[in-house]
């Protein structure tokens, strides 16, 4: 090896780096929040393990994620680092670049290797209405010291459920579920469960079912400040 030219060293090190690259394992990638909007700061938490040689640390280390068209690319930081301690599972959280409305691919690359790929959907900013079955739900909450109620942001979890948040998209405050119980008792069933002691009012608009009434009807569910209160309404609409 003595007298080996610099370019040969570079090639040898490159080959070692390439072989080490295959030893990165990504078990999962989680986004926070999992269902973000374009107004949210989004992070990705990567769980996995690195089993690298002396060229790199055993920690999972990544360059800052970057947006390339509709792909968020996360690239392993392959720069040489301290000698490797015993390898093991690792968790790294990375802030993602600002994302506009739309669907994105997310890739994790180690050199030329695609280690992991997945998808992320980013909704439009600030929806405050959740559409559930044939009903729509809107929630206002009362900030401490403020006389004016504020609209909570809604995140839809599917046709049947949604949650609302007040100040942080990662901090779920109220969850609402609507089941179609018409086959059982002729009504939609509404379940409201609270993770807060703040005052809130949930308003649900649905089809009017009382005799002589046509069009829409409104149901309200209000929780007082200082109380953690749920609502179950099996005769809602």
């Amino acid at each position: 090896m003595r007298g080996m030219p610099a370019w040969a060293w570079a090639l040898a090190l490159g080959a070692l780096a390439s072989s080490a690259a295959a030893d990165l394992r990504v078990d999962s990638v989680r986004f926070d929040p999992a269902l973000p909007t374009s107004a949210d700061a989004v992070s990705a938490t990567i769980s996995g393990a690195a089993f690298k040689g002396f060229l790199s640390t055993c920690e999972l280390r990544f360059l800052p994620p970057r947006l390339d068209g509709r792909t968020v690319r996360i690239v392993v930081d392959a720069s040489p680092s301290t000698p490797c301690p015993p390898p093991g599972p690792a968790i790294v959280t990375l802030p993602l670049p600002a994302l506009a409305y739309g669907s994105y691919r997310l890739t994790i690359e180690d050199g030329a290797l695609l280690v992991w790929s997945g998808s992320l959907m980013v909704g439009g900013p600030g929806p405050d209405v959740a559409f559930l079955n044939r009903l729509s739900a809107r929630l206002t909450w009362q900030p401490v010291g403020s006389p004016t109620p504020q609209a909570a942001s809604a995140v839809t979890l599917g046709e049947n459920a949604a949650y609302f948040w007040f100040t942080s998209p990662s901090n779920v405050e109220v969850v609402v579920k609507v089941l179609d119980g018409r086959l059982v008792n002729g009504h939609f069933w509404i379940f409201v469960s609270s993770l807060t002691r703040r005052a809130f009012t949930l308003q649900v608009v649905g089809p009017c079912t009382t005799p002589g009434c046509s069009g829409s009807a409104l149901k309200s569910y209000s929780a007082a400040a200082g109380h953690n209160q749920n609502f179950i309404d099996l005769n809602a609409f």
């Binding site: 980013v122 439009g124 839809t156 979890l157």
Partner: peptide, 12 residues
């Protein structure tokens, strides 16, 4: 803007 958001049940 494409690709856009598709609505799923369940969302995840």
């Amino acid at each position: 803007p494409v690709p856009a958001v598709v609505q799923l049940t369940p969302a995840l």
